[in-house]
Amino acid sequence: MSVRAIRLFGDPVLRSPCDPIRLDDRRVAGLVEDLVDTVAVPGRAGLAANQIGVGQRAFSWNIDGEIGYVINPVIESVSGEPELVDEGCLSVPGFYFPRLRYPHARVRGVDLAGDEVVVEGDGLLAQALQHEVDHLDGHLYIEGLAPEVKREAMREIRGSTWWRTGAREA
């Protein structure tokens, strides 16, 4: 299919929880292909369907050379002591802010054939799994920032060129 434009913070689709996907919908294969093609662009770690304007529950990841996807993912477990990590987002381009994430995460969902998929990992993969499921639940990572960090983050975001011009896609 194609590399799709990324919706930016301020676009209402990013604040809406995504609907579960029905695997009998013929459009699902195209969505998965677009998610995989779009996340494969160098420098990208994860991408939720609503970030390309589709309010359905699927995401893709690109971590350490491994690209994959999950349909209808749910976080099954997180573990370890939450750690402060610098986090960025394709929908909030150009910014990284410190936020707490669990160092290990496990997500369960399905693939296009309806077979169970379990993705789990530590570090960046754990962070991406939590981040992308948050997107599908209608939450942006900046919502999880400490209050003083969030105030500064919002000041910086409002000063960005893309925010001032009202851009909603990158």
Rank of each mutant, 00 (worst) to 15 (best):
G65I: 04
V110E: 09
P93H: 03
S16F: 13
K150D: 06
V74Q: 11
Q51M: 13
S79V: 05
G55T: 11
L112R: 01
G80W: 00
D37V: 09
V78W: 10
E148Y: 14
W163A: 01
Y69P: 00
R151P: 11
R151S: 06
I52Q: 03
V74P: 04
Y69D: 04
E81P: 02
E120C: 11
P103V: 08
G123C: 04
C89L: 04
Y141N: 08
R22D: 15
V54I: 15
L125P: 12
L100N: 13
L8C: 03
A5G: 13
M154Y: 02
S60W: 10
D37P: 13
V92W: 01
G65W: 11
L8H: 05
G46I: 08
V85P: 07
Y102T: 12
A40G: 15
R99N: 05
G65E: 05
E169K: 05
V149N: 06
E33A: 14
L140Y: 03
G121R: 11
I52Y: 01
V78A: 03
V149F: 01
H139C: 07
A126M: 11
R155G: 02
R22N: 12
E120G: 06
R22E: 15
S60R: 08
E66R: 15
P12Q: 04
R7F: 14
V54H: 08
L136G: 05
G94P: 03
P103F: 04
N62L: 10
G53Q: 03
Q51E: 02
R99V: 15
V85G: 02
I142F: 15
C18T: 01
W61K: 09
R168Q: 10
P103H: 13
G30W: 11
L31A: 01
R108L: 13
D134C: 05
V41G: 06
K150N: 05
D37E: 15
M154I: 09
H139I: 13
A126L: 10
P42Y: 02
L23H: 02
I75A: 12
I21E: 00
E87D: 12
I52L: 13
Y96L: 15
G46P: 11
E132C: 10
V13Y: 02
I6Y: 00
M154S: 06
F9A: 11
S77Y: 10
M1N: 12
S91N: 04
V3R: 06
S2A: 14
V118I: 15
A45I: 12
W162A: 14
R106M: 11
I157V: 15
I21M: 01
L31F: 01
G94Y: 03
L100F: 15
R164K: 12
V78E: 14
S77K: 12
A146W: 08
V110M: 10
G138D: 02
E169P: 07
D24R: 10
G121D: 06
R15W: 03
A153Y: 08
N72I: 05
S160Y: 03
E156N: 15
E87A: 02
E116C: 10
R7T: 10
D19T: 12
V92K: 04
G68T: 04
D64T: 06
A45L: 15
L14R: 06
D134S: 07
G114E: 08
F97R: 14
V110R: 01
